[in-house]
């Protein structure tokens, strides 16, 4: 795994446009979780890394409404509210996920832009 700082596709570097263009193999090989949501909040992209680390199969997540079913632990003012309130967003926050009831400290990067059809949540386990 290359140093995140040097990798243009690293957690802090990768852009919305690059995320939209990633081929599935590259996306699945990245060391952090990627969740891509449609404008109305349904999961369209869920990479292998996130599936493995969250312990949730892609089948059970893709097509669900992310904040109201799969990730209720992000359905609050610190995460979901940002996507609702802001037109564009590139925000990194420290957070604790409780997917599958397990408290897991993570760094989240929330991405939203007018040019992209999808909103993205990048999840790096600390």
């Amino acid at each position: 795994m290359s140093n995140d700082d040097d990798n243009p596709l690293g957690f802090s570097q990768v852009s919305l446009m690059e995320l939209d263009c990633l081929d599935p193999a590259t996306r699945n090989a990245l060391p952090y979780g990627i969740v891509g949501l449609s404008a109305d909040g349904f999961v369209e992209v869920y990479n292998d890394t996130e599936s493995r680390l969250a312990g949730l199969s892609q089948d059970s997540v893709i097509g669900t409404h992310y904040f109201s079913t799969t990730a209720q632990c992000m359905n609050n003012f610190m995460v979901a509210q940002h996507f609702e309130d802001e037109a564009t967003l590139d925000l990194t926050i420290d957070y604790v996920l409780t997917l599958r009831m397990r408290p897991t400290p993570v760094r989240l990067r929330l991405l939203k832009g007018s040019g992209s059809p999808r909103d993205y949540i990048l999840i790096q386990r600390l």
Binding site: Q72, C73, N75, N76, D94, V96, T98, M101, R102, P103
Partner: peptide
Amino acid sequence: MTMLNPVAMQLLHRLGNASA
């Protein structure tokens, strides 16, 4: 904490920087 659900986390968040 070894297990907790989102509602628990949400309530703890409101007590300050508890989650850390």
